[in-house]
Design a protein around this nucleic acid. Structure first.
Lengths: 337, 337
DNA sequence: CGGCCGGTTGCAAGCGTTTGCACGAAAGGA
DNA sequence: TCCTTTCGTGCAAACGCTTGCAACCGGCCG
């Protein structure tokens, strides 16, 4: 079928060992030999067999990218960025989709199956149970988490708590007091902290301002636009509806914006809305939001794993926290009083 | 490090050949032996080395998923669906991102590098040049295209032309005449047909209704929300602006909606907008659109490749066209006269 | 002039599975 | 009772590359 290393060796009049070394740029190969080998290999259209070199070296040149909800904005962005970082480095991105525990259909993730298939792992927002995490750790591969920090592994994320405070404080500063929170499900059993950190940030900001968080103002939006819409409708139906809503994701914020419009409320006149993410459509819709660098987080995670594989960095203790910023647009204003 | 087939063989008191056969459920292994082997393998936490069995069998149990714009809605949906279909079948999804030719930074895609790394290929919307396509064909692997049909390969898509006609005819039927089109860049050199088919459908519908398509009403939106916004602003600034816009994607339609709002126009009172896709947010924003089954297309492509690998189907001549439907929501109405 | 040295190269033993073939035993038929 | 089958199993040769080690070749130093 296609050329093998033998064929190149024969064609160049050298041994397979020399071909192997020449092609990989190892030292101790004379320049003339290297040239000949390269030429012959090119002529024959030779491509090294990944399978064979994997077996021989034990390195797979592949990284697993474990992600739930790949169809959602944040995850798609991150996955795309990771892939773009991995490929030029010669690594394959192995996609591993996950149905997270809270969806009922949770197919438990078996980290063991990754053994020998990848050299490293990148996990998006840790949608794993404790046992699954342990199994993953047991693989003893360079592992980077995005959007959460896990002890004993590398991670890159934003300060979710601070981001939430920032958003909430902005609303407080505008003069709002009745500030709601639309976020994850409080009863959700996942290990990943972003939802609860964002809730905690909301609470902390309120308390610090001397406002007691109203339990009725804490609603689950499930991080989807549709969930945000429901949450928004629920909030606006309260006897004393909030004047502002802090949403833990832009997609939920879109839902809340829509709910407001459907109820005939003016944003930001009657209701202020602030999100988190920096979703592409947020700019169009004029959503005031806390922008987080999604692609940069993906890239950073990929680089960390790659560097750990190069041995350049002590394996696995780095925790990177990337900055966020408030993008003031048109969805928040002082309350009408 | 981890257990090898030898260890299992020793533990079960049989040869490695028997272990191999027992574990893979091949015939000619006694039930008792199979049980013993399974038990020992389990106890040892044995996982077959993918690399080794790849080398031995020549099958990689991996499928390449080639996609441009992975961060965009359509592609993210499709990739997620493909992955979800592949994994239960025991196949890995190898993500291959692409920077398409029109972005300047086009890193030409070298199909040769896939040789020996995957058993099959799924390509989203053919963002490839003729030469790249030829190389891919030369790989001689089961290949399925999503969103475009390529001679000599399998494909699954929608009838883009019909979808566009459907959207445009709906607007005509409402009484519109000045109907614009926001789509891909007409000068774009790509081989993929969706953008031009959608434009053609728009034109055909107009002509059939006896309306001559106004060249100024044909604007490039680059399939992004931002592009749609620009296109919308451009259209609305015309001396005689359109009363309706048919957008070749929902994301562009969002941009047009926003442009209308920014110019103080009422939708659908002053401007009707119709999209194509079935984007999640379309429902929230009340966008009337042609809904296409994105996940189903991904799943179908994955299944086709899998079946071709099983040899169940004559390799590679199937072309599936999935149906679309018009979702009437709130963004289109008869023109104000 | 002989030995040593650094730079190149080849040899061959892996890497961990799979699989064609041969083999022995048990079962069935004449 | 002996000869086929059939079934279950083991042997050993691939699969295509990498790599430690040894060999070789000039040239240089003493």
């Amino acid at each position: 079928m296609s050329a093998r290393i033998q064929d190149v060796a024969r064609g160049a009049g050298v041994s397979t060992a020399t071909v192997s070394r020449a092609l990989r740029g190892l030292p101790n190969v004379s320049e003339s030999t290297r040239l000949t080998v390269a030429r012959v290999a090119h002529e024959l259209g030779y491509v090294v067999s990944r399978s064979a070199s994997r077996l021989a070296t034990g390195r797979t040149l592949a990284i697993a990218v474990i992600s739930p909800f790949m169809e959602r904005w944040f995850f798609a962005q991150a996955v795309a960025a990771i892939e773009a970082e991995l490929r030029p480095a010669g690594f394959d991105a192995l996609l591993v989709g996950l149905s997270p525990p809270d969806l009922g259909v949770h197919q438990p993730f078996d980290a063991g199956t990754l053994r020998g298939r990848v050299d490293g792992v990148i996990v998006l927002t840790v949608p794993l149970t404790g046992r699954e995490l342990d199994d993953l750790r047991a693989l003893d591969l360079p592992t980077a988490y995005v959007g959460a920090s896990v002890p004993g592994a590398m991670s890159v994320r934003i300060d979710d708590m601070a981001a939430a405070r920032c958003g909430t404080e902005y609303l407080l500063q505008l003069g709002h007091v009745r500030i709601a929170h639309v976020g994850g499900d409080p009863r959700q059993p996942l290990n990943f902290s972003a939802p609860s950190d964002r809730r905690a940030g909301w609470m902390a900001a309120l308390r610090q301002a001397g406002v007691d968080p109203n339990p009725a103002y804490d609603v689950a939006g499930h991080f989807t636009a549709d969930g945000g819409w429901r949450a928004g409708m629920e909030l606006l139906a309260l006897p004393e509806p909030p004047t502002a809503v802090y949403c833990a994701s832009d997609e939920m914020a879109f839902g809340v914006l829509t709910a407001a419009r459907r109820r005939g409320l003016d944003v930001p006149g009657d209701l202020s809305v602030v999100g988190v993410d920096g979703h592409e459509l947020g700019e169009l819709l004029g959503l005031t939001t806390i922008v987080q660098p999604v692609a940069a987080q993906g890239r950073a995670a990929a680089r960390m794993v790659l560097e750990a594989l190069d041995g350049e960095r002590a394996r696995g203790q780095e925790h990177v926290v990337l900055p966020v910023h408030l993008a003031v647009r048109d969805s928040a204003a002082p309350p009408r009083d």
